[in-house]
């Protein structure tokens, strides 16, 4: 198997799992959002890795007969990035509301307050 072979996919998996770990292991809500963004960006990297053709160029028509990389993943990810920001804004707004209501953005403290009341 010649370099880089499947190496890109393994990096993607590492980043993805790191994001998942942050979401699960950290109680801070903003840190969880950062974890979600890491996860999301790793999926973007995965898609674009699949779209690459060896020796290819960016999918913009140029004279001659070049090899183009696959434009379809680019389109899908372009949409996904923008939607990702929309959901991030939504999540942060909810976090701000939670902070107003509970005075904390730590998940376990919110849990505690819920149990006490």
């Amino acid at each position: 198997m010649e370099w880089p072979g499947l190496f890109n996919y393994w990096i993607v998996i590492f980043l993805m799992m790191a994001g998942l770990y942050v979401v699960m292991a950290r109680a801070n809500l903003i840190k969880k959002m950062v974890g979600l963004s890491i996860f999301q960006a790793s999926v973007f990297i995965f898609y674009l890795t699949m779209g690459k053709v060896a020796g290819g160029t960016a999918p913009i028509v140029i004279p001659g007969n070049p090899v183009y990389s696959n434009p379809l993943p680019h389109v899908l990810i372009l949409t996904a990035i923008v939607v990702g920001v929309a959901t991030l804004a939504m999540g942060l707004a909810i976090i701000v509301r939670i902070n107003e209501a509970y005075g904390t953005i730590e998940e376990d403290e919110i849990d505690q307050q819920e149990h006490d009341s």
Partner: peptide, 17 residues
């Protein structure tokens, strides 16, 4: 993304992400 030829994606990610 620039390395894998996704130039449109790259500048969207830089601006938005």
């Amino acid at each position: 993304f620039v390395v894998v030829d996704g130039v449109d994606v790259a500048f969207t990610e830089a601006a938005v992400g």
